[in-house]
Design a protein around this nucleic acid. Sequence first.
DNA 1: CAGAATCTGAGGTACGTAAATCAGAAAACT
DNA 2: AGTTTTCTGATTTACGTACCTCAGATTCTG
Lengths: 341, 341
Amino acid sequence: MKPTVHDIARSAGVSLATVDRVLNGRPGVRAVTRSKVEEAIAALGFVRDLAAANLAKSRTYSFVFILPDYDNSFMKGLRREVVAASERASTERTEIRIVAVPHFDPHALVAALEEVLADKPNGVAFVAIDAPEVREIAAKLNEAGVPMVTLVSDLPASSRDHYAGIDNIAAGRTAGSLLGRFLSGREAKVAVLAGSMLVRDHRERVEGFLAVMAEAYPNLRVLPVIEGRDDSALVEEKVSEAFEVTPDIAGIYSLGGGNRGLLRVLRKVPLEARPVVVAHDLTDATRAALGEGIIDAVLNQDAGHEVRSAVRVLKAKADGLPVIEAQERIRIDIFLKDNLP
Amino acid sequence: MKPTVHDIARSAGVSLATVDRVLNGRPGVRAVTRSKVEEAIAALGFVRDLAAANLAKSRTYSFVFILPDYDNSFMKGLRREVVAASERASTERTEIRIVAVPHFDPHALVAALEEVLADKPNGVAFVAIDAPEVREIAAKLNEAGVPMVTLVSDLPASSRDHYAGIDNIAAGRTAGSLLGRFLSGREAKVAVLAGSMLVRDHRERVEGFLAVMAEAYPNLRVLPVIEGRDDSALVEEKVSEAFEVTPDIAGIYSLGGGNRGLLRVLRKVPLEARPVVVAHDLTDATRAALGEGIIDAVLNQDAGHEVRSAVRVLKAKADGLPVIEAQERIRIDIFLKDNLP
DNA sequence: CAGAATCTGAGGTACGTAAATCAGAAAACT
DNA sequence: AGTTTTCTGATTTACGTACCTCAGATTCTG
């Protein structure tokens, strides 16, 4: 049988109240008595029953998720996952509040975080914008002891407790290797299509991609980065333009949103002239394109995993418990048409 | 505030005892009263507090994990993960018993499962061997209402509740596509290295691989499958032999264990003549080889994820709760040297 | 050595649910 | 009508921990 506080009390020869004082770090216990109790705890291998403790405390967890009100497939999916998590969480004394903020707007994010600071919930998760003012408020939250998880897009490691997202440099490198291998040695031109170089994750993907190109694929010439603002109409326009200027594009790395626009252009390219394409984010559009062979590989981050991970980590931090690192590592999923879920 | 059983009782105008009878499906409630209570439950949106319920019941979960006593890297890792899960589980009123059985021995597995049937734990997970006698005992366990999860290797879907493992046909197909793309169009010979064609997962990988070869890569000639018994010494011997007979092997799909033996041979092959290699299972050896460029891609199943998933599913089944399908899907991880964890 | 300050024990209530007992009410039988 | 059966309410105890109060014991202070 698992030992209980009563067993500790009996074994240490003290009363329940004293055990309770030791366990919860309350004052009023002599050092000698304290260590007697601690020995008994260690000897019996007592571990506090969290469920019972939470019940007694009527502890509830309150978490805040700050999400950009951006309307691309990925963010929509992310919101959906947060809502789903929030519904499940209600059975577990956990309340998840969702706050929407205008996207790419550091000030709006800061304002939302300031409200969080005033509120003092048991944890906060947000899609970070790596700007000085955001780092500043993050430092304040940290100081105030509010567990903090960045979601999808990170801040410097010092100012948050955990990052639930992929390593974007590694993602860029992976895309580079795939493209390089798929193009296998031939002299060719490669286009890079990003959303915006102002966003850290996109910058990092480009960085990783270019590094691999430079290191391993001197045969490939990378054209200037096209910024499509994650907007499929704009993407379509800019990619069309690029094909007019450079008809012999042999490879494309699309690392942002707006892939629908890219696909519209690609479908017009004659089959034999179609470039090798590596894109990000598994959506209905990219999934279909993978199946047709218009896209060759899709890199993906699992929004569901990210959200569940964020909730688990926040809960663990709130309880002062360790996290299972391996479980919380967000992978870069690589999908070919053969391993689609 | 979340409604409690007391609120239900008050709202329905019945006593606590009656609410309890309805909630737990006990007899002794008239149909009219029952539906009154059910209406109140629906109206208030009551959800039973599982933590409190389990506390009151002093419910404990007892799960059995049956693992083959096989000593390759993967099985060692799997056992390690089960042990880790078992340690964590002890804080959550969950006891995980680990049973070792001789590997590839259907009768030993059946014997272990028969013990489980006598024991009636709250759930069982095992690395399945797809043999008639195993299916038979699985059916009995199913009938006895013991939740059952197959781990790594599956049975037909009907006889278990859940499979915590990868889709091996998809894995084979993925390997085939990678190899095909990496070899890009040239006429070449490809070797397939399996552990044993008697094991279902290996058979399925080969099946998927050959299917893709036939569909999409007519330029590649697949040599007869080499069976290395997951034993690195034997693998080394047989692969050496294969290279003697066919010096111009341009691609290798290694889908079983014993990769250390394969690597010993490959390191002797002159750099420019080295084949493209896709292997299974990320171990110290394959990880190092990826880094060196001796292996080009590694397909992996995350043993930690599989074990945690199995535990979550067993718990959910024991509580009659739904599982989050997306969370329990085990991915085929694809590692290049660029996205190693 | 008295008085104050600090420590400790005993006991209780609470959290939300499960499960049991017992008594009374209502319905279904003779 | 009386008897049996079935339903329902009231009440209690329990799970393991948290947290409160109060009294008594011990130590420290002057």
